[in-house]
Design a protein around this nucleic acid. Structure first.
Lengths: 234, 234
DNA sequence: CGGTACGTTGAGATCGGTCAAAGGTTGTGG
DNA sequence: CCACAACCTTTGACCGATCTCAACGTACCG
């Protein structure tokens, strides 16, 4: 975690020490259990150690929209700790392990260690950048491309987390969840994935996605990793 | 500006003084001119004093998606100053006046005045919350509701900026721009707006939108102001 | 007064949604 | 080890919201 934050902003020993001395509780969440519920106050910040997690909102009518997916190394609750009441839900996608840090401690930390605060801030700015790309994905791309783009983004981010293999990666999402993330129906996700497969852009086996030719998929989806700010150095 | 920031986090005289002593240049942008271009480095942070501004991205194929609209009192460049290279474009919607503050000064400020940094951070977190709502709007609501929701959001935010009247507000966006913001075509925006008008939910006259019954429009669009975090007090 | 940008309208096409049923997979208990 | 349930994927037929293309109308501006 400290290693990741250092990529966001320069830290000194004083900062690192403060980070290391944060108290935290290890917690396990089962698939589809809630880490945060809309309308509640957050008292802990959680850092994902293992597993995947997603943010989700519901319309009045009850349709679900997944607005982001998070991976090991991501913080999922910086927003809720500073904004008090949560405006969305966070659920476990897979079984996952997290570190829960009391909000008070984080707030105290950022007030006394500005550089740590800045590193965390940068983290939320990258999340925001990903939101912007998702708006475009859902608003302006046709179904096939939308899914291909999502697969590219996951590939890039999972690679950073060390969760990809040379030929592809494990994607533990149902087609219904993919639909909720892309603004499509599960039926149409199914057909679109088959179409991608027919184009030889992806190969699916169980929950594993193989990508025979990264460059071709990238090109087909219009993906450009710029918005992930993976280069983010001090 | 200071007044607004104080709503985000508690500041003391020391903080206020530092804010007041920031140097800045006043600038004017003509409609549709660029404040930020994708791929460039930002050297100034801009605070909107007057006028409207929008963020925009283009797909490979050239369709435009507006990902946010900003109003007087909003910062439009915090992201770019901390993330170095801009991942999207920012354009003036109307003629507007801004204050441009050198990035170096802001960075120095947040390193020495953590509470100011926190206030600015909260500001970007609210932007992120709005992005999430937009993802849902574009992903899961039918056209009429999508537009109605956008109109509700603008109403709520313009009210804060003191830019509404009792019966409605001035909305200087073309139907094409509304389409770019909602992921629709200008043609369909036209038809949907007419449908809203036929339902007596809105009345349009030039660039002015009247809302005969706020509660009915709110209900019809599924709008809830929670995500705007307007309550955000220290 | 003419040009330009924006709004409006119609006809027809298409992408993606709905509904419904039939396979597959996985896990569980007998 | 089998049977069954629960959940997920796949498929077909049909429908409808939204897009496309193209024309026409309207307001503003020099």
């Amino acid at each position: 975690m400290v290693r990741k934050l250092e990529k966001r902003a320069p830290l000194d020993d004083f900062d690192r020490e403060a980070l290391a001395s944060l108290s935290f509780r290890r917690k396990i969440y089962e698939p589809s259990s809630y880490l945060v519920r809309e309308g509640t106050l957050a008292e802990e910040i959680t850092l994902i150690l293992e597993g995947l997690v997603y943010r989700q909102k519901l319309t009045q009518e009850g349709s679900r929209q997944i607005v982001s997916v998070h991976m090991p190394g991501d913080f999922v609750d910086l927003e809720n700790s500073l904004l008090r009441v949560a405006d969305h839900n966070v659920q476990a996608l897979t079984r996952c392990e997290v570190a829960a840090i009391p909000v008070r401690e984080i707030i105290a930390l950022i007030d006394t260690h500005p550089r740590v605060g800045r590193a965390l801030w940068v983290d939320t700015l990258i999340d925001a950048s990903i939101y912007r790309e998702w708006i475009m994905n859902v608003g302006r791309r046709p179904a096939k491309q939308r899914l291909a783009h999502l697969l590219c983004e996951f590939a890039a981010r999972l690679r950073v987390a060390g969760l990809t293999r040379e030929d592809g990666y494990r994607l533990p999402m149902t087609q219904e969840q993919l639909g909720d993330a892309t603004g499509l129906t599960s039926v149409h996700v199914n057909r679109s994935l088959k179409a991608l497969e027919a184009d030889n852009l992806i190969v699916r086996r169980r929950q594993f996605v193989s990508i025979p030719d990264w460059e071709r998929l990238r090109q087909a989806s219009g993906f450009s990793g710029l918005y992930l700010h993976l280069d983010q150095e001090a």
